[in-house]
Amino acid sequence: MYFDSIAAVIDMNGHGLYVWLAYAITVTLLFWLLWAPLRQLRVRRLWVIAEGHRRAVSDEPQSESAHQRDEADKTFSDSSETQG
């Protein structure tokens, strides 16, 4: 270990602001990079499940259900935004 106190680690001989700012920005961006696909996968799984239930409930003709699906897609993505 190079530093001998927490204060020295934070200060880094006056360079602390630069070093910690750089690391903080990096950690934030990397966290987002990992979190975004996980959230996307979760949201899409819920969409597939909801779609499955819709299909099971309605026995409508193909074109009608396709239209409904688009509508459901829209409302779903809207609600998922507020969820996130």
Partner: peptide, 16 residues
């Protein structure tokens, strides 16, 4: 960040 020595000229800023 914590174990490596500082640089002889740049000091700790080089840890970036």
């Amino acid at each position: 960040l914590l174990v490596a020595p500082p640089d002889f000229r740049q000091g700790n800023s080089y840890r970036i």
